Computed example of a mutant assay.
Amino acid sequence: MSLKDEYVEKLKAQLDEWSADIDVLDAKVRKTDAELRIKYDEQVSALKLKREEAKVKLAEVQSSAGEAWKELRKGSDEAWESIKSAIAEARKKFNE
């Protein structure tokens, strides 16, 4: 397996994990009272947007030819850190 393939597989696995986390948080939102639901719903919507951005970065890496994927890796890593931080923050707030 090439370095690119390993990287793509790592990103896919992490994206799947985050998607599951977002689904759990979304389910928690549905169980909260109306005031909290609005607050949390905004956070979940923001997470879903970041997830879509991460999917775009993943697709860019997957479709890159030759060594070009290495150039795209930096942007992907930044997107991944952004969603990682956002999910961690949301988990903290939802568990308060």
Rank of each mutant, 00 (worst) to 15 (best):
S2E: 08
K4W: 05
D5L: 11
D5E: 15
Y7W: 08
V8F: 08
E9G: 05
E9A: 15
K10D: 12
K10R: 14
L15H: 15
S19I: 03
S19R: 13
A20K: 12
A20C: 03
A20W: 10
D21T: 07
D21R: 08
D21Y: 13
I22C: 02
I22P: 00
I22R: 01
D23R: 11
D23Q: 11
D23F: 09
V24T: 09
L25S: 00
L25T: 00
A27L: 12
R30E: 15
K31D: 10
T32C: 04
T32I: 07
D33M: 06
D33Q: 07
A34N: 07
E35M: 07
K39D: 08
D41C: 03
E42I: 05
Q43S: 08
Q43D: 07
V44T: 02
V44N: 00
S45A: 13
S45Q: 09
A46H: 12
A46S: 14
K48F: 03
L49C: 03
L49I: 06
R51Y: 15
R51M: 14
E52V: 05
E53H: 09
K55E: 14
K57M: 07
K57R: 13
L58N: 01
L58F: 06
A59V: 10
S63I: 05
S64Q: 03
G66N: 05
E67Q: 08
E67L: 09
E67V: 08
W69K: 00
W69I: 01
K70E: 15
E71T: 09
R73M: 15
K74G: 07
G75M: 04
S76W: 12
S76F: 15
D77Q: 09
D77P: 01
A79N: 05
W80Y: 10
E81F: 11
E81C: 04
E81Q: 13
S82W: 03
I83E: 00
I83L: 10
S85D: 12
S85C: 03
A86K: 02
I87K: 06
E89K: 13
N95S: 15
E96T: 08
E96I: 07
